[in-house]
Computed example of a mutant assay.
Amino acid sequence: MNDEASAHVDGCRAPESVYEALRTRIIQHDLEPGARISIAEEAARLGVSQTPVREALHRLEGDDLVVRSASRGYDVTSPIGVEGLRSLFEVRLLLEPWAARQAATDRLSNPAPRLRGELEELSSLHGAGRAVQAQRAAGDQRFHRWIVEATGNHVMAAAFERLHAHVHVFRLYQTDAEGHDTHGEHTAILEAVEACDPEAAEAAMRAHLLGAFSRLSSGLPADAPPLRSTAARARLR
C-alpha cells in the first residue's frame, strides 16, 4: 500500500487496511525502529477513528513489530540484531525448503504460473531507491507466500507471515540492492517447481535462504559466524 493509497482508508475495511498501512510503514522504515507511534496522529493521517488504529497496533504487537509500555504507549520494535536474524533464518531453513519440495508436484496447486508472473513483475523494477526496494520486498514476500500456500498448511502460512515481516525490515540494508542475486535464486526455485522436481526445489530454496542471510547480515558485525543449513549441521555431527 503506497502513501496515496494509505492516506485515507475506506471505513468498511478499516481494521485490515489500517493494519496493512501501519505494517507497510514499519517495514519500509517510514516509521523508524524505536519511534513512538501516536494513535491520534495515525488515525488522522488514515482518516479513521482511533479504534481501528488501536486494533492494528494490537495485531502488530503480536507480530513483534511494535512494543507497548504503560508510560509511552506503542513504539516500533528495535531491529532484531544478528542473533535474532540468525534464529529467524534457522526456522526458515526448517520450513521453506520443505514447502518448496511439497509445492513441486504435478497438481493443480503447483504455484509455478504465479511464481513466473511474480518474477516477471520483479524484473521490471529498476534502481535501488527505498520505494523500489519496498516493491521488491513485497514481490519477494508474495513469491515465497505462493510456495507456502501451495502446501495447504495453514499453520505454516501464519508462521510465514510473521517471520517475513522481520526479514523485510532488513531488506533495505542488504548488498544485493537491485535484486540480481535474488532473482537468479528465485529463478532456480521456479524452474524446479515447474519441472515438478521436489529434490531440486528443496535444494534451490535452501541455497536461496543461505544466500539471503548472507546478504541481509552483510551490514552486521563482521565477526558474526556464518549460518549453516540444517543439512550441513547434520553432516558435522
Rank of each mutant, 00 (worst) to 15 (best):
A5M: 10
S6L: 09
S6V: 01
V9G: 01
V9M: 07
R13Q: 10
A14V: 07
P15E: 02
E16Q: 10
Y19E: 09
A21Q: 01
I26R: 00
H29M: 03
E32T: 05
P33E: 04
A35W: 07
I37P: 02
S38I: 03
E41D: 15
A43C: 11
R45D: 04
L46E: 03
Q50C: 06
L57K: 07
E61N: 06
G62F: 07
D64W: 13
L65Q: 11
L65F: 04
V66K: 10
R68G: 03
S69F: 09
S71I: 14
R72H: 14
R72I: 10
R72W: 13
D75L: 10
D75F: 04
V82C: 07
E83T: 13
L85Q: 10
L85S: 07
L85F: 11
R86P: 01
S87I: 05
F89P: 03
L93C: 00
L94E: 08
L95C: 05
W98H: 14
W98R: 13
A99G: 00
A99N: 04
A103H: 02
A104H: 08
T105H: 15
D106E: 15
D106V: 10
R107Q: 10
L108E: 15
P111I: 05
A112R: 05
R116Q: 12
L119W: 12
L119A: 07
E121A: 14
L122W: 04
L122V: 08
S123Q: 08
A128L: 01
V132S: 05
V132M: 07
R136D: 00
A137Q: 08
W146T: 13
W146A: 13
I147V: 15
I147A: 10
H154E: 14
V155P: 02
M156P: 01
A157V: 01
L163G: 00
L163R: 00
H164C: 05
A165G: 15
V169R: 15
V169G: 02
F170P: 02
L172H: 15
L172V: 11
Y173P: 00
Y173W: 09
D176A: 05
E178G: 05
G179R: 11
G179S: 09
G179N: 11
D181V: 12
E185H: 15
H186Y: 02
T187N: 08
I189A: 04
I189G: 06
L190M: 04
A192G: 06
E194W: 02
E194T: 03
A195C: 12
C196V: 10
D197F: 04
D197P: 01
A200F: 02
A203V: 11
R206Q: 11
H208E: 05
L209C: 00
G211T: 06
S217R: 12
L220T: 13
P221Y: 04
A224F: 02
A224L: 07
S229Y: 01
S229C: 00
T230Y: 09
A231I: 11
